[in-house]
Amino acid sequence: MSASTTQDRHREVLRAIIGLAPDGVAYVPSASIAPIIDGALEAQANGDLALVYPVSREEEAMGLVGAYPFAGKFGVIIMQDNGFGNALTALTTFAAAYHLPLLIVANTRGGLGEYNSMIHSISEPVPELLRSANIPVFRVDRRNPPEDWGATVKEAGNHAKMTFRPVTVLMEFYDHKDGKAKA
């Protein structure tokens, strides 16, 4: 039962992203969200997502996806939270400053279950960094049922469009009941 919970969260997040019908999805890899990225690529192959593509760094994604609203379009970025260090200038001085809606779905690092001895140095302050830059942060973790993960992602996307700004969802995958859940 618990072994499938992480899969359920992945599935619900992917379903929510597809439901938002984004015009493009840019991704930077992370092991804990690889099933979401793989699922997005599969959705592209099936015609359920328009365009799914890799970027070399998170700041690139802010420029690429941030440009979509100029043409009335909308995009999603899938990444891990330590990448906000790379992305912060582009996120603030472009996407936020020009009021460009986009959705960032990021897994958290550096918390419970983490194996890397220093990644918490960037990941722990990320929520405060984002909030201090007026970037909204919504969070889900093991205490939220999978359908709540999906509902949060879906509504965060709508919130980005409604408020004309980048919006983030931080997903903590640690689950003491699921040994396969990756930080």
Partner: peptide, 21 residues
Amino acid sequence: LYLLDAMGLAVSVGTGLAQAI
């Protein structure tokens, strides 16, 4: 469209806009 700061972002923005149009 002038990028007033956003150092190094012009090609990324242009590529995104090319997709969008």
